[in-house]
Design a protein around this nucleic acid. Sequence first.
RNA 1: GCGGGCGUGGUGAAAUUGGUAAACACAACGGACUUAAAAUCCGUCGGCCGUAAGGCCUUGCCGGUUCAAGCCCGGCCGUCCGCACCA
Length: 850
Amino acid sequence: MASRYDPQAAEPKWRAAWEKDEVYRAKSPDEAGDAPKAYVLEMFPYPSGRLHMGHVRNYAMGDVVARYKRAKGFNVLHPMGWDAFGMPAENAAMKMGVHPGEWTYKNIADMRAQFMKLGLSLDWSREFATCDPEYYGQQQEIFLKLYEAGLVYRKASKVNWDPVDQTVLANEQVIDGKGWRSGATVEQRELTQWFLKITDYAEDLLEGLETLERWPDKVRTMQANWIGRSEGLQMRFEWAGEAPSGHNGGIEIFTTRPDTLFGASFIALSPDHPLTLQLAEGNTALQDFRAECAKVGTSEEAIEKAEKIGLDTGLTVKHPFEDRALPVWVANFVLMGYGTGAIFACPGHDQRDLDFARKYDLPVIPVVLPSDEDPHTYEIGKEAFTGPGQIFNSGFLDGKSIEDAKAAAMDRIEEIGLGERTVNYRLRDWGVSRQRYWGCPIPFVHCDKCGVVPLPTSELPVRLPEDVSFDIPGNPLERNEAWKSCTCPKCGGDATRETDTLDTFVDSSWYYARFASEANLEERNYWLPVDQYIGGVEHAVLHLLYARFITRALGKIGLVDASIREPFAGQFTQGMVTHETYKDSGGNWVSPAEVEFGGDAPVHAETGSLITVGPVEKMSKSKRNTVDPDTMIAQYGADVARMFTLSDSPPERDVEWTQAGVDGAARFAQRVWANFDALPEPPTRDPATGEGDLRRTSHKAVAAIEQAVDEFRLNSAVATLYEWTNAIRKAADSAPEADRVEACDMFARCLQLFMPHLAEECWARLGHDTLIVHAPWPMPEDALLKDDLVTLPVQVNGKRRSEVQVPADAAPADVEALALSDAAVLAHTDGKAIKKVIVVPGRIVNIVVA
RNA sequence: GCGGGCGUGGUGAAAUUGGUAAACACAACGGACUUAAAAUCCGUCGGCCGUAAGGCCUUGCCGGUUCAAGCCCGGCCGUCCGCACCA
């Protein structure tokens, strides 16, 4: 009587066995001997309290890689921890009156229990949370060392300030100019904030992208765009009239189009330019203008729709090449944060400048002539010309191409000492100050006598105080006098602690190094870089860029080997898990668990009211289209849930969670078990010999799976497993027992990557008393990978007409002769002149006839 | 506006990177087993013509290169993502 596989009974049993043997513990470099290392890491989770299907997919992918590497003899590090600081804990504190720490550690415990049920090959011995004082203490030490190394500084900067919550908001937390929680109109405030000097590494981070061959091009492109390198000229326009005090040298501008200098018609300053600020003193018109500019929101739409506005300062500067003066305006479209905060405007060849010039009736001088235009009649209309052409109206640049003119103009500017070639980056320094409680305290004190003073490492960690309240808005650290007051390490006098905490991106920018080793540098250098990193695209820029920066910075301060420039040698961005959405007749979101599909149309299980099926979207709480992993594991087992998230779509694409698909994966598990169950008990120990079909199929399948996993085509690997399963079943009556046992043995080892519990059960059924996690990857025999006979399609004029069976090593001439004599081929070639015959050995034959 | 990706059956998708398009799975349909259902198993399953053998068409659209194009090149269309007043 055939038995069924029962995941509920089998899964806990095998997990207990793995745990007992500590099978997933990474070996130390000494223990590992000659085995090469493989560091497999998925982006560590935020402890929200519940696992979701996105986690299951993410960690299932990493687990395939980790198990594969382990089977291939690598010493594998596959750790897990918690990205545990951040706003949600404070929000929970405000809402429910629970301490953020208590809330966080409770969530970690809950999620760890859920993780355990997934049967992932994780080394839990290295677990930590970023909110552990041991972790953030080390982070404070790093911060101090970065400070000594000149990579940390303070400066005043504009922030989004929520006046009700008394806190700084990230741009994403500002919706239509209002705070996302309080709904209050957000103000722009100047605060002195801590910064990390990521711009020191702009060029290095850009160049490093070239070396990251195992990263998706998309992510590399996004980072390159984010860094935003542009080459150009930084130059000075000297005053034509009287110089404003303190600005005798003139106005510094940056341009990438020095070729259009002869088309300059005005200079524009940012409303936040130091000169603008100076001029605004005692100038109400300019003050009003600056206030007007500040009103325009920071949102994308606001910027897009924002009209260009400006104000003439009355000042004038000299053109560098011609005897004429240019007016100096203040314009809202000039950003203080890029270049020098001032530009020269060439309305003919820049759309923004043109819009502005038309509005304020400033001159428009075309200097680049499109190839199909006449220099005497060419005029600029409503659109600036930014294409290629020949320079004209431009003195010594006339007749040159844009590129040549750029070079010539820059040469001349350098000669006359007005400026020089420079490179500008879009990348800004990383503001890491957060006016929040639940984060890593910045280890500095403020002393009236000594200023801002770093704490000595002996005083680390600076722990977060426990006695805090969240009943009033603002930063609890700010009003915790007992915690704030301290002594200055320099003068011994009274001082106040820094109350800003670090951006949580700092926590996650070095955790992979901490997993590699808590303190042992040698071990850290042994494991780094991460060989395969896996996570969502949402971190394609910030997290991955910060980590790349911090790795370089850790090299500079001696906390990792300086030759390790990149933290992640291989990187993979996985797609999301999506699901249909449902709404009831009242337009409320309904969760899939509440919908009944039995009848003609889906209805609400409780009320019986009709359900409208909406588009497939990312699983989210707000749309209630989530499926709870725990429920799935209880019903189908972890293996099935994991398998399904990998089976239906390529890993980088979204996968739609469907009931039917899960049922399919569950059926697969039963079919697999049926194949093992059908073997005699105990199965033969005779080795498989010969070149039977099943043997060929099996050995080829192993090779196919190996290649698919190497190339991260996990869905293809799964498809091969399915095919192989069918082949084993079909051969049940025909193949020799030894061949079937061999097939099942190899199959189980491959299955282990995807469905480890089932694989153990199968392994035991084969009579092994060891664990399959210790079994090496199967070695396919070369002889079985190649067929003796191959079937070649035969085309006539590119259309498939027949096929011929030939020995794999047949001479092309023989293949050609055979193909030409084939009856079905002759029907199409009869009476026609054969012009050419192409034989691609092992592939195809194509006969070209007139 | 700039940058990047994607477009293949009813559906999710394969296609060793130029060599038999649609593997594998889902759904659907037919059949077997069953009193019945579930489960399981067997079969059909891109379109058109044909009783059949077979033929013609088919990878968003148009064109090109090639003995041969889903894949390469040029031009469109659609769609998704990232950045965005970056000088």
